[in-house]
Each structure stands twice: as structure tokens, then as C-alpha cells.
Amino acid sequence: MNYQFLLETFFVALSGVPIALLVTVVALLIALPLGFLLALTRINKIPVIHHLAKIYVSFVRGTPIIIQIFIIYSSIPLLLKIIFEKYHIAFDIYKINPIWYAFIVFAFSSTAILIEVFRSALSTIEKGQLEAAHSVGLTTFQAYTRIIIPQALVVALPNICTATVNLIKATSLGYAMSLPEITLKAKVAANVGYNYVEAYLDIFIVYLILCSTVEYLFKRYEKYLSKYKVANA
């Protein structure tokens, strides 16, 4: 065991954290509202859209994320190439920063996961809550923002936490898109002297710290949000 390398590479791995977090945050910013809206289409059985949403969810849940990455990472350049050639746009598609692909891939998969999370959370809220809101003169929009969503959020939070942790973990697959995140950075450092054991130990520790911190923060927030439920317990 090369302890000197172990220590140095820990900071190399740590320097990949901002990229991993950036990808996670951007993916969630897209996936949370989109997932919620699509969950509403599923609950209210909006024609066509809710069937498409169902197929979309089934695809994402049914295929490994690495294969989703392969597909998106190899199809988007193809599509862009065709479009750019058709309109004679001079643009080198191989110069696109891989982080854009990462945003698309992880937003794509997180949205599907969150549709299911919100769908099951919304289905636990009684219809009477909406009726009561209507009966005191709230509009449907007000009823959702003030009554339904705050309640559904508390129900959904543990699952949103799991989805977030899984998302952070999934960014480790960014290597397939040459995304310089935690895993890739440490691995590259290890390539020089074949110090793979040390490098992966470092990566392991960084994810452990990162994910347990995120879990802790979610737990704190959950406690804060569900004060009306704690009273019951």
C-alpha cells in the first residue's frame, strides 16, 4: 500500500466533487418539476401523454443506466451531425463539453424515477384535501401549491433522497462520456503507477462522505417538514 499516493489521490478524487454535484443539481433542477408535471398527467390520466410517460418510465427502469449513457452519448452527435450538415453549419460536434451530455443523460433518467416517486406520493393524498380546499374558495392551482404539494413532498422526501443518492452514485459512470468527475480523475492518477487499490479506496471514501452527508441533510429537512406528523407519533 502506497500511503503517500493514497493521501495525494484523495484530494484528486475530492477535486471531482464539484463536477459530480453540478451534474446532480442540474439534473434534479430539470427532473423535479418535469417529473412532478408528468406524474400529474399519470394521476389524471391525460390522454396520450400519460401513456407515453408510462413507456418512458418503463424504459428507464428496465435498462441499465450505462446503456442509456451509451445510447445518448452516441446518438446525439449523430443527430447533430446530420442537422449541421443539412444546414451547413460549421461546428465541431466533438468539441462539445461532455458535461452537456451528462446533464441530458442524468436528467433523462432522474425524471423517470421521480415520476414514479411523485405518482405514489400524490396517490397517498386523499381527494378530500382538494375538495376541502375548493370548498373554502381556493383555486385548483392554490390548492396544489398550498395544500397538496406540501403534503406530497413530505411523503416523497425519503424517495427523493434515495433518488438523489443514486444519482450521485450514477455520476461515477461519467467516465463513459469522459466527464472529469471523482472516479475518472482518481483513475487517471492511478494509471501512472498502477496504484488502483489506493485510488479506488479514495474514490470509495469520497462517495461515502458525499452520500452520507446528503442523506443526513435530507433526514434533517424531513424532520423539519413533517412537524405536523411527528406530533402524531
Binding site: 384535501q129 370548498s135 395544500i147 405536523y228
Partner: peptide, 18 residues
């Protein structure tokens, strides 16, 4: 609805409000 109020069989109080 602004002029009519409703009292529900199962109360339907907003569970997230005091």
C-alpha cells in the same frame, strides 16, 4: 364557492396546517 361553505363527513382538515 365563495358564498357557500362545506362541512365534510370525514372533516378533510388540511393535515399540514394547524
Amino acid at each position: 364557492r365563495q358564498r357557500v361553505a362545506f362541512v365534510f363527513q370525514n372533516y378533510n382538515l388540511f393535515t399540514n396546517k394547524t
